[in-house]
Each structure stands twice: as structure tokens, then as C-alpha cells.
Simulated scan of single mutants.
Amino acid sequence: MIVLGIESSCDETGVALVETVAGGVPRLRSQALHSQIRMHQAYGGVVPELASRDHVRRVLPLLEAALADASLTKDDIDVVAFTRGPGLAGALLVGAGVACALAASLGKPTLGVHHLEGHLMSPFLSADPPEFPFVALLVSGGHTQLMRVDDVGRYEMLGETIDDAAGEAFDKSAKLLGLGYPGGPALAALATHGNPEAIALPRPLLHSGDLDFSFSGLKTAVMTAMTKFGPAPTGQQRADLAASTQAAICEVLVKKSLRALQETRLSRLVVAGGVGANTRLREQLNAAGARRGLRVHYPELALCTDNGAMIALAGALRLQRDPSAARMDYAFDVKPRWPLVQA
């Protein structure tokens, strides 16, 4: 069975084709992706209307490219999966509309997929796929969550952010440092030239006794540090602050993740979402896992950002467990706010 996945929740247009394998993990046949980063850089962040319009321009050419790369035609598609939410409403509607129109023209069923479930399942496309059950750290610009995952669709929330997500903390701190968009990668790059112990920054909720997160206070501390530097901070001061900010965020993520593994008595951690590509975070989690005999799994770096492969994969895994999940009525809606535990 060939599952087409269409992702359009924010500022990446992704199309991919996944083939289900009897008794095994689906395999990726091809994918095509367009990032809108360059377009949004002029505005310092994502402009929803521009994002939606760009999805309209990109999705069909990307579909043709993915089909050609897989040596398939539209008639080979068995199910069309699309991101139903969460995300920007207008952007989601583009992907959903294209998916349902295409499926109707082919007489094939559709399946709305949860964006975060796509991220959660993306490590199954890696060279070292996880096994159920595991603890998942979903960490991105909009979400920071710890979950117990027993199977596809069987999720228990262990803790989540009560204000800014980790990715927001990276991006907002980067803006305070005068770095461009996207801020997270720019801050991480600058941090390689700084001392992570140079500036004392808070680790919010690190000792709270629960598994929730809070990063808004860290952002305020970064702003205070920049004020103390004066109107013309040196390059080294900015690098030290970037390194110290990254260190604070990663320490909280690592220690909360280890606590979640301890409390659930599980030995596998899956890290997914854009912040999961952060080199320092991976190094610290890998080191902690080696010390404690834990397995840590990540998606391939190319699959850390939003992409169609994770949507096609999540749809294929859902259908393996419930073939009736796909629909043939072609009516659709989107869910800009959609808790994963309700998916």
C-alpha cells in the first residue's frame, strides 16, 4: 500500500510517499520539501497569509517531484494522508483541501493526521528505529511535552510547558541577541564560540518535583543580561550569553527526560521535533543514556523539521492498526488547536 503524506501546518510544504511493509515498519519511497524560511526572514517570523499562499504554489509541483523520484504515478496512491492540525488554520486548509480534492479525483480514501504524532513517529524512519513502549520528548517551537507512548494512538501526557516552549525560548532569546530568523539554529551556531558557564541563568521548574516545563523566565533573564551589557555588547559577550542560554534549556530538557524515564521505569527515550536537532541536546542525552544504560532515538536530521514523510508514516502506522481509519466522504475540517492525547 502506498500512502501519500501532505504537510502544510506552518512554513514548510512537504510531500512524501511511504510504502507499507507486511509485518514491518513502513519505508519511505520519496519525499519533496520546500522551506519558506527565506521568504519569512524579511519579517522576522512567519506571516500566516504569506505561508498559506506559498503552500498553494508549492504543493502540486512537490507532488509531481515526489512521484517522479519514486517512479510512481497518481494512480499508484492508495491513501492520501494530510496534516489536520495543529497549526496555522489557513496553511492547514491548503493541505487538507488539496489532499481531499486529489483523493476524490482518484477515488481513494483520506486520513487526517495529527502533526505531533507525525513528529513522534518520525524516528521509525531512522536507521535505529525505537520499539514500544517509550518516553517521548516532543520539543519544538510551539510544543515541549513529555509523554509515555505504548503504541500508535496510546499516549499518556507526563508533563508539558506551562508557558513558552523550548523552541520559543531559543527563538526569543536569539531575537534579544540580535540574531536573525530562524533564531534557534542561529543561537546554537553562536553558542559554539561562547562559554556555557559564563553567565548564570535560571533553570525554571528544574526542581519542581513534576515533569512540567517553563521557559518564559529564562527569556526575561536573557533580556536582563543584555541590558547589563549596555548598548554595544561585544561579540564574546553575545556568544557567552548564547552558550549559557542553550546550556540552561538543554539541562532542563535532559534532567526532566531522565526523571520521566525513572518514573515510568522505561529504558527508551524518543526525541522528536525541531529542537531535537540541537547538537548539545543530543550530546548530553547520549552521554546520560550511556551512563545509565538507556537507549535514545532521534529522527534523521532531515526529518527533524516539518515534512511530509512523517505525515505519510503516521498515516500508514494508523492504517496498519485500523484499516477503517481512512475515509471516503471527502468532507474535511482542520484543527489549529488539537491535543495529541485526543488524536
Rank of each mutant, 00 (worst) to 15 (best):
G276C: 02
A287M: 13
R282I: 08
D128N: 12
T305A: 05
Q237P: 05
R38E: 15
E251Y: 01
S30K: 10
A65D: 10
R292F: 05
M328S: 14
A65V: 06
L106T: 15
D212Y: 09
A200K: 14
D306Y: 15
A81W: 06
A166M: 07
T234A: 14
V254L: 11
D210Y: 06
A232D: 13
E7D: 09
S267C: 02
G273E: 06
A127H: 15
T192H: 05
S140E: 13
V46W: 11
A70F: 08
H40S: 02
L17K: 02
S324P: 10
L67Y: 11
A314V: 04
E168Y: 11
R268T: 10
D78T: 15
D164Y: 02
L319M: 06
A42R: 14
R238I: 10
G23H: 00
M147D: 00
A68D: 13
M157W: 05
G153C: 12
L72T: 07
L266S: 03
P48W: 12
A32M: 01
L303M: 09
F132R: 13
K219G: 00
V271E: 01
G90S: 04
G141H: 04
E251T: 08
I199A: 01
R53G: 05
P123V: 13
D78A: 12
L92K: 07
G24L: 10
P196N: 11
T234H: 13
D240H: 10
E117N: 09
T144L: 10
S122R: 08
A239K: 07
R57L: 12
L218C: 01
A309V: 09
L62F: 11
T224G: 02
H193V: 07
E7G: 00
L60R: 15
K74Y: 11
G153V: 11
M310Q: 09
R268E: 04
A312T: 14
S122W: 09
A198V: 07
S208N: 11
T13R: 00
P26R: 01
L201D: 01
H114F: 15
D76H: 13
I2R: 07
A200F: 10
E283Q: 15
R282K: 14
R27N: 04
R318E: 08
W338P: 01
N195I: 06
A272R: 00
D11H: 02
L319E: 03
F229D: 00
C304I: 03
H207P: 01
V149Y: 09
A65Y: 04
L218A: 05
R268D: 03
L102F: 14
F82D: 01
N195W: 06
V152I: 15
G293P: 08
C10H: 07
D212N: 14
G230S: 02
S173K: 05
A260N: 03
